[in-house]
Every structure is written in structure tokens, then in C-alpha cells.
Design a protein around this nucleic acid. Structure first.
Length: 694
RNA sequence: GGGCGUUUAGCUCAGCUGGUUAGAGCGUUGCAUUCACAUUGCAAAGGUCACUGGUUCGAAUCCAGUAACGCCCACCA
């Protein structure tokens, strides 16, 4: 027979990948409604459904996305070929603060701030931006071969989503689980919004520990033999202006006699009490601590226990308030710090200062130092929800892979605090109570993702058929931020866990083990790899290195190996087509008489069985290694060489069988080249390898 | 302060429940090009499996401890 002309040169991914993807999309088979019925008797009657962790609309694909997309696509393609009704829902997240920041930054180039525009106009700009750039990342997913059902694409601020979010909020509200409270929150003075604990990034910083003398009221001017001061140590002297007590540990001998007495707060000359509290560490500093209930989390709790007044001395913009006193009002925090220290020196009340390294919270988006301050926020009670989410994993309803990540999840939930769900930004879902200008934390809407993508709160067919979904694959850093919250949302609103298995995939690091990041210049761009080596090769390179969930120190050469492997498959096919000519046989050989052939088939059968097992337990890297080893070194290097001086029908049949089965086996990993090969096989009435039986 | 992970060939990593000469990819060296493929084949070099001690007939693998590196959590002001 004559070969297609393109078979006469090496495999060219550029000639094939885009074309093939378009044909897949045109076929409609990404949509389970169009998929030919369940073809397997062993297929579970349940469909197989995955929701994509929606990437931010601001983003473009990074290596983590590429890994995660490949993992999900492997599962989806494998299950589709196994005959399951298979659905992968794509979409994007509005990513409140992140997106608002990007748009603000763009406006800044034109010299405009969001306040110049006003809320409504600014939001128009954000929507414009979203329409223009929001789909980039989805198109990049197509490039990598992701077989998502694009007709079901969702956005966390689309119409249905807004309805769902408000329904969820009101549901909690009616249950009495949502309340408003004056609380110390993590405040980003740049973004002018509160942040949750999970949105912070701690960094080790060099600071100073200041030892300040607070004059003892009761002995002031009476005796000079005993120390006249209580000395407290602090890294933030400016907050002393908001002090309402000094606290000591009740078991601390040094201060036992002083409990209940008063000291005079220097500078402001306010009289404040000395209280006892277990939260105070005897060993730290002097063992006595200043208490600033409006600007510190621990202090707020101490204040609560002792009914202390709260003096807010720092405002939402990070400037000192009138309560800080005339000479400090209006100063920035750091300016105030300097001035307070100066003043204390003047008064002779600064005992000493020490260099001190401590970790300081920063905004994870804009890197500004967090200012804990008291403000009115909305909270969601976590006691019941937290327990529900905890139990789902504890009793094995939801399983983590690798299992060890369940510990991270359980540890966090076992001491979870109420969730501050309000944010003072503009881009997001408005809190559905009249008069509130706050928006909800982005994760409030993300928590509903598996529900809303299937139609909730409406009782849709999709919800009935596909909920709960099967597997969630995601990164470790959002186990608490996102996974835990989806679990309790699912249980609360549909009475069912949102998914059974959670894959926590590897983190891809730069080759030297550092984080991949744009600013460090350590990032590798997956789109660049696809451009250079093809999507199959990129997927191969990624999965080749993804062994057992271990972190990956990225090594490019495996992508090259993947590209070579594509070409190898191509040439194996070319050889077999040339050899068997019109005798191409798609049936499985039985009663093999030739011992070499028999041995090969036995090995192959074992590989098939083993690969299936490995995919089922999410050991994709190992599966790929084994398949590669067999196809290249058993089949090509040995058997094909052996077959060269054999012309019998049996040998030819074995060649055909192993080839066709191998490209099926590899299709979930390398969908393009395998499809390209399949399309060139002499088979009547064929559609796509994508929907062939595995 | 807690928790977790890693340490095997020059580099990136496999090695499951302990069992013959410890494997792969890339790299290196030698040989082979009218033979499906040079994006190739054949062959070779290269490892006291972090360290110490223990269990065992037998340990890269199990146990205890040490060290180095990395990550996460926590209210040390």
C-alpha cells in the first residue's frame, strides 16, 4: 500500500496538534450529552465528572496549571475511553483583589485611580478587561489538549453564579450563622480591605525589640528603693498609644504583687491596669506585655477577657488617628514609631533596644505589611460547617491522594476560627443585605464551584446526573482556602460531599529547587515548551517527572524525550504499515504459536493491566515510565527487529495488535500524536481514537 | 515551638510488602548510516544507595538516632 505523504518525514506536531484539536471540538464529544452511550459492561453506572480549579482571569498558564490540566485530562480521556459518561467543566475565577489590582495598575499608567472613576465606572473597566483577557487562559488549556466541555464554561461572576452566591449567603444568614462584628482583622492599607489569615504571607524581617518603662502609679514619687517601673518589650512602640492595660502571667512571681495596680501610660499619661492572663509567656521579654486590643489579635482576646477599652490609634490608610494624640495624628505608622521612640528617649523611659528577627505578615497580593486593626466585618460561623468538613475526611468519605495531606486539612479544621467573609474592595459579589457596600471574599464563591457549575441552586439535570463529582485535582496551598470550604458547602447545600477523591499534585520547582516565579526569573513557561516541542512532548515531560506526588525540580530534557517518543511512535507505525500492507488486522490474536510473539503479548497484557491499576490510583508518572519502556525497548527495539525477517500472518497480526493497543494506552498521556496515527490507519468507519474503547 | 517531605550514577528521578551483577531519562565514550526512525541502533564507562547504630541468614528497602536541605502551621508581644 502507499503511505500518506506526510509519513515520509519525521512527526511534525505543528502540522497536527491544532488541526486535531479543532476536529475534536467540532465532533462535540467533549460534551457528554453527545457521547455515544456507555460502551462497556464494566463501566459504573455513575458518570465521571471533574470540575477544573478555575484559574484567575488575570492569569496565564504556568507550570502548575499545565501539570494539573494534564492530570485531569489523563483521567478524563481514560474514563471516556473506558466508556464512562465523562464531563470536565472549565471556567475562570473573578479573583477579587488580584483582578482589581491588575486593572488599577493599568489605570495608573494613565494617571487614573479607581477613586477618580467611582465604583460603577471602575467596575465597567474591570468587566471590559475581563472580556478582553479573561479567555486567554482557557485558550491555553486548549493548546495543551484539555478535553473540557467548553459549552459548559462558567465564570464565578456570571449571572447564575450571582444568584447562587446570594442564595447561599441568605441561607446561612437565616440560620443565624452570619453575623457582623467588631473584630481585629488583617488589614491591607494599600488595598484598603480586610484579608483572611490564609491570604497572608509571613516573612522573616529584621526589626527591633524596644523595652519601655511604664511608671508604676502606686509608687510614683513615694519610694525610690523599689523599681518604679514595669518594663514591657514590644516590636511596635507606636501601638502603645492604644494600650489599655499591661498583662502578666498569673504564675509569674516577679509581678504577683503588682496585679490589680495601675501604671501610667507614657506620653499620653493614661492610667491603665496591670492584669493577669494565661496568654502571656513568662519567658518572653520581661514577662510583662502591653495590651493593645484594637491592633493585635492576642491583645484583643485579652481585652475581651478583662473588658478593656479599645483605642483605635491607626486608621484604614495606615495613619495615626486623633486618639494617638495631637503630635502623632496623621503620621504614617513608621513615622509614628520613630517619633514615639524619640519621645520615650527624651522622657528617659526607653530602657533599651535590641535587634530582633521576627516574622511579619504581608498582603499576599500586593506585599504591603499587614496592619491588624479593629473594624466592622461580616463573619460566617464555622463551628458546625467546620465539623462537617472535618468528619467527611476523617470517616473516609473524601480521600486525599497522597493520604498525608489529609493531616493538613484536619489540623486546620480542628481549630478553625469564624470566617471573615467581607472585603472592602469593589470587584466581587456584593453582600446581599441592603445598604452594605462590602463584597464577599472570593473564596465564598469559589466554595460553591462544584455546585454552581452544575446548575445549583436550580434543580437541574446536570446537578442530578453529575453531582457529586468524582475527583478534584489541585495544588496543596489551597487545601484549606478552597478544598475544605467546598466540602462543607456541598454537604450543607446538597447534603452530599462534592467529590470523593482529592489529588494533591506535585509542586513544580525550578531546577535549583527554588520556587518558580516571574520576579525571580526562575519560571518556565509551558506555552513556550508547547511552541517548541509540542503539547504531547510537554505533557510527557511533565508527567514523566510527576512521581508519587513528590515535588518536581524541573528538568527540560524530559520534554525533549517526549518529543522523540512521539517520533518513535510515528516511525513504528510507518514501519508496520509498510510491512503489513493491505493485511492490517485490528483483531486480537489468539493461539499464538511463535514463542517470541507469545512472550511479547504476555508482557503486553501484563502492562495493560498494570497501567490501568496505576491510573486508577493516580500514579501517572509510573504508568508512563512503564509504557515507554515497553513500547520503545521491548516492542520497537526487540520485537520489531525480530519481525523483520518474518512474513507470516501471525507476526503481522501481533504487530498490528500491539500498535493499536499501544496508541490507545498512550492516548490519555499524548493525545495528539496518537490521534494523528489513528487517523492514518486503514480502518473503515472510524471516528476518533478519543472515543475508542480502551 | 509543632508538623511534613527529601537525601540513590555528572544532572533530574524510579526502586511496591527486605532476596540473584541497584534501574530509567538526559549527559559522556566507542562502534554502526542505501535496512521504520540519526528526534536512530548496539555497546561501554559511571553509584561504600547522607551518616551512625540495631533487627535479620540477608537491608537502598524495616526500626532508632544524627546531619543537611526544603515546605507548611502557630497569638512569642
Amino acid at each position: 500500500m502507499s503511505l500518506n505523504e506526510d509519513f515520509l518525514k519525521p512527526y511534525d506536531f505543528k502540522d497536527n496538534e491544532d488541526k486535531i484539536y479543532q476536529n475534536w471540538e467540532k465532533s462535540g464529544f467533549f460534551n457528554p450529552d453527545n457521547l455515544p452511550g456507555i460502551r462497556h459492561t464494566d463501566a459504573d453506572s455513575r458518570p465521571f465528572c471533574v470540575v477544573i480549579p478555575p484559574p484567575n482571569v488575570t492569569g496565564s498558564l504556568h507550570m502548575g496549571h499545565a501539570l494539573n490540566a494534564t492530570i485531569q485530562d489523563i483521567l478524563i480521556r481514560y474514563k471516556r475511553m473506558k466508556g464512562f459518561k465523562t464531563l470536565w467543566i472549565p471556567g475562570t475565577d473573578h479573583a477579587g483583589i488580584a483582578t482589581q489590582n491588575v486593572v488599577e495598575k493599568n489605570l495608573k499608567k494613565e494617571g487614573i485611580s479607581r477613586h477618580d472613576l467611582g465604583r460603577e465606572k471602575f467596575l465597567e473597566k474591570v468587566w471590559e478587561w475581563k472580556e478582553k483577557y479573561g479567555d486567554i487562559i482557557l485558550n491555553q488549556l486548549k493548546k495543551i489538549g484539555a478535553s473540557c466541555d467548553w459549552s459548559r464554561t462558567r465564570f464565578t461572576m456570571d449571572e447564575g453564579y450571582a444568584k447562587a452566591v446570594s442564595e447561599a449567603f441568605l441561607h446561612y444568614y437565616k440560620k443565624g450563622w452570619i453575623y457582623q462584628g467588631d473584630r481585629v482583622v488583617n488589614w491591607c492599607t494599600r488595598d484598603a480591605t480586610s484579608l483572611s489569615d490564609l491570604e497572608l504571607e509571613y516573612k522573616e524581617e529584621e526589626g527591633k525589640l524596644y523595652y519601655i518603662k511604664y511608671p508604676l502609679k502606686s509608687v510614683y514619687g513615694i519610694r525610690n528603693t523599689k523599681p518604679d517601673f514595669v518594663i514591657v518589650a514590644t516590636t511596635r512602640p507606636e501601638t502603645m498609644l492604644g494600650d489599655s492595660a499591661v498583662a502578666v502571667n498569673p504564675e509569674d512571681e516577679k509581678y504577683r504583687d503588682l496585679i490589680g495596680k495601675n501604671v501610667t501610660l507614657p506620653i499620653l499619661n493614661r492610667e491603665i491596669p496591670i492584669v493577669e492572663d494565661m496568654a502571656v509567656e513568662k519567658e518572653f521579654g520581661t514577662g510583662a506585655v502591653k495590651v493593645t486590643p484594637a491592633h493585635d489579635f492576642t491583645d484583643a482576646e485579652i481585652g475581651e477577657r478583662h473588658d478593656l477599652p479599645k483605642y483605635q490609634v491607626i486608621d484604614e490608610k495606615g495613619r495615626m488617628t486623633d486618639l494617638a494624640g495631637e503630635e502623632f495624628e496623621g503620621l504614617k505608622v513608621l513615622e509614628a514609631r520613630e517619633k514615639v521612640v524619640e519621645k520615650l528617649k527624651e522622657l528617659g523611659l526607653l530602657e533599651k533596644e535590641e535587634n530582633y528577627i521576627h516574622s511579619v505578615a504581608h498582603c499576599y497580593r500586593c506585599d504591603t505589611v499587614i496592619e491588624p486593626l479593629i473594624s466592622k466585618q461580616w463573619f460566617l460561623k464555622m463551628s458546625d460547617l467546620g465539623r462537617m468538613a472535618y468528619q467527611a475526611v476523617e470517616n473516609g468519605d473524601v480521600k486525599f491522594h497522597p493520604e498525608r495531606w489529609s493531616k493538613v486539612y484536619l489540623d486546620w479544621l480542628s481549630k478553625v476560627k469564624d470566617w471573615c467573609i467581607s472585603r472592602q474592595i469593589w470587584w466581587g459579589h456584593k453582600i446581599p443585605i441592603d445598604g452594605s457596600t462590602d463584597v464577599l471574599d472570593t473564596w465564598f464563591s469559589s466554595a460553591l464551584w462544584p455546585l454552581v457549575t452544575l446548575g445549583w441552586p436550580d434543580k437541574t439535570k446536570d446537578l442530578e446526573v453529575f453531582y457529586p463529582t468524582s475527583v478534584l485535582s489541585t495544588a496543596r496551598d489551597i487545601i484549606n482556602l478552597w478544598v475544605a470550604r467546598m466540602v462543607f458547602s456541598g454537604l450543607e447545600f446538597e447534603n452530599k460531599k462534592p467529590f470523593s477523591d482529592v489529588i494533591i499534585h506535585a509542586t513544580i520547582l525550578a531546577k535549583d529547587g527554588r520556587r518558580m516565579s516571574k520576579s525571580l526569573g526562575t519560571g518556565v513557561d509551558p506555552m513556550g515548551l508547547i511552541e517548541k516541542h509540542g503539547a504531547d512532548a510537554t505533557r510527557f515531560g511533565i508527567i514523566w517527572q510527576a512521581m508519587g506526588g513528590q515535588d518536581i525540580k524541573w528538568a527540560d530534557e524530559h520534554v525533549l524525550a517526549g518529543q522523540k517518543f512521539s517520533n518513535k511512535l510515528w516511525n513504528i507505525t510507518r514501519f508496520i504499515l509498510t510491512k503489513v500492507g493491505d493485511d492490517f488486522d485490528f483483531s486480537k490474536p489468539d493461539n499464538i504459536s511463535d514463542p517470541t510473539s507469545k512472550e511479547l503479548i504476555e508482557k503486553f497484557e501484563k502492562l495493560l493491566e498494570q497501567s490501568e491499576k496505576q491510573i486508577e490510583i493516580y500514579e501517572f508518572g509510573q504508568a508512563l515510565h512503564d509504557i515507554y519502556e515497553f513500547v520503545w525497548h521491548e516492542f520497537a527495539d526487540k520485537y520489531i527487529e525480530y519481525s523483520k525477517n518474518k512474513e507470516d500472518k501471525e507476526t503481522k497480526q501481533v504487530l498490528c495488535y500491539v500498535l493499536i493497543k499501544s496508541i490507545k494506552l498512550l492516548h490519555p498521556f499524548m493525545p495528539f500524536v496518537t490521534e494523528a496515527i489513528y487517523q492514518r490507519l486503514p480502518k473503515k468507519d472510524k471516528e476518533f481514537l478519543m472515543i475508542e474503547e480502551w
